[in-house]
């Protein structure tokens, strides 16, 4: 019995050691990219072995980034890009808890900076900027035409909670609107809020079904397909919050070629074109 146990444990340990060695070997070639001489060799290695890279991105980037990733993978068949879309807050927590990520794209600085401060990312760059707009059901039974209408009694609003970027920005916007000579606006607006959610995915269904009258969301969140059910109303720039999306490469994977290749694609002409198509502004 005990001999069997020892054998089993030995087999297990052997397996772990073996896989560790295998992982070590696959990691080595991409590490040797220092000089131009080895660059050519590295490219051949990359084409031989399928490489996986993982991108954590704010939920609001889902449509655009999925498009970009698909196009990128079509051009680079040897690279598999794995994406994880969630609220930036959730992603930040996952990374802090040790998720293995190559690129992190946050919807605001608040969730990005702690990762940088912890030394997990060295360089912070801005990928794009985004504005907010009022979203109403296509029927717009409540007759909402501008910010002021959102405080009318009996208007049902579903907004982002104060811990997610678009929820913070919603509060900033209504604050600025109140300061512009609309006394009592914030209280009247907040009185109409019936639900506070963490992601826009939970707002769209209630707008489409006409169960809520309005919300304030990222312009880019309402895709072309959504626009037949949901109408966007612009918020003037003087009240609006221009959100910038920072991104960075995780230090541990900073020298992976596939990651560099993807970054170049994302910030290059092709990536930028897709981002613009989805309503983002590229800095």
């Amino acid at each position: 019995m005990s001999r069997k146990n020892v054998l089993l444990i030995a087999a297990l340990v052997f397996g772990i050691v073996l896989s560790a060695f295998a992982a070590g070997y696959t990691a080595t070639p991409s590490g040797n990219t220092g000089t131009a001489g080895t660059a050519e060799k590295t490219v051949t290695v990359v084409t031989e072995e399928p490489v996986e890279i993982t991108v954590f991105a704010a939920a609001s980037l889902k449509g655009a980034l999925t498009d970009i990733v698909n196009k990128f993978m079509e051009e680079n068949k040897n690279i598999k890009v794995i994406t994880n879309f969630a609220g930036s807050q959730t992603l930040k927590t996952q990374i802090q808890e040790g998720a293995d990520v190559d690129i992190f794209i946050s919807a605001n600085d608040k969730q990005f900076d702690p990762i940088k401060d912890a030394g997990l990312i060295t360089e912070k760059k801005v990928l794009l900027t985004n504005k907010l707009a009022i979203a109403v059901p296509a029927e717009n039974k409540a007759g909402i035409k501008e910010l002021g209408d959102l405080s009318k009694e009996g208007t049902l609003l579903v907004i982002g909670n104060k811990d997610v970027p678009f929820g913070q920005y919603t509060r900033d916007i209504i604050g600025k609107y109140q300061d512009d000579g609309n006394e009592g606006y914030v209280d009247a607006f907040m009185k109409n809020v019936v639900s506070e959610v963490d992601a826009v995915d939970k707002i769209k269904p209630v707008l489409v079904l006409g169960e809520a009258d309005g919300s304030i969301v990222y312009k880019s969140d309402i895709s072309k397909a959504d626009r037949k059910d949901i109408t966007l109303i612009e918020i003037p720039d003087k009240y609006n919050v221009i959100a910038s999306y920072p991104y960075g490469i995780l230090k541990a994977n900073a020298d992976k070629d596939a990651v560099k290749l993807f970054e170049a694609y994302l910030t290059g002409d092709k990536g930028t074109a897709v981002l613009k198509e989805y309503g983002f502004d590229v800095a």
């Binding site: 927590t93 909670n161 104060k162 809020v193 639900s195 506070e196 963490d198 209630v206």
Partner: peptide, 22 residues
Amino acid sequence: GNFQGTTQTMPLAIYTTMQSDM
């Protein structure tokens, strides 16, 4: 929906506070 005091039950509060106060 999710609104403290009206509809935010324990599981929803866990989900929400996970983002602000672990």
